[in-house]
Design a protein around this nucleic acid. Structure first.
Lengths: 105, 105
DNA sequence: CAGTATCCCCAGAGATACTG
DNA sequence: CAGTATCTCTGGGGATACTG
């Protein structure tokens, strides 16, 4: 968390969920559990490195959980936690806004 | 706009309104018209340079308007446009989320 | 007051290669 | 398959000074 002396709620949300990818990742995982490479395919523009880093952040913040299956080859599934699920209204609103934005002009 | 080949709505919103400051600036202006230095005081962590750049972006996207009073010294007022006003539900949801985030642990 | 204009820097992110 | 490990580089953004 960089700057949040102001204690502003909007700033708090941006500090935790800002950036190009976090909301997008959650918007997929909130619909269904997904594997690592499945997410890569869903987000064609993110690098493997960034996806890993963003997933770790989201996990540390408690929004998603990571389940490892000790198979060969390894299988890892990501899904939203209860806290992640609480972001659904926000995600929905962001989606609505995006649809509207694309419809302008 | 960097990457939006996917056409995803969430990505669209992030491309247009992402970044640390845009949502925050709109959240202030949606409540009331403000002058430049008034905004600076409201956002203690933004540099003058960034505030100018972000305001120009938001103006170009049609979310805010800029009114110049030819007084001495100059007076410039920023306020949301009709399109900016349409972001209110999103801003409200971001605020709610921020309040919740701060209440966790 | 409300900005521009410069200079400068580093952290965020890409590319590539390797591995349990 | 699902990641690390490096190495590299760019441009976003800070600091400072100046101005209509």
């Amino acid at each position: 968390m960089k700057n949040n002396i102001s204690g502003c709620s909007v700033e708090e949300t941006m500090n935790v969920l800002g950036g190009r990818w976090k909301m997008l990742i959650i918007s997929f995982l909130i619909e269904k559990t997904m594997r690592f490479n499945e997410l890569r395919r869903a987000l064609p523009h993110i690098s493997q490195r960034m996806l890993t880093l963003e997933l770790r952040d989201l996990e540390n913040e408690g929004f998603i959980s990571r389940k490892i299956y000790a198979e060969v080859p390894v299988k890892v599934e990501y899904s939203v936690t209860n806290d992640g699920e609480k972001l659904r209204p926000l995600i929905e609103e962001i989606k609505k806004t995006g649809i509207w934005l694309k419809s302008r002009t």
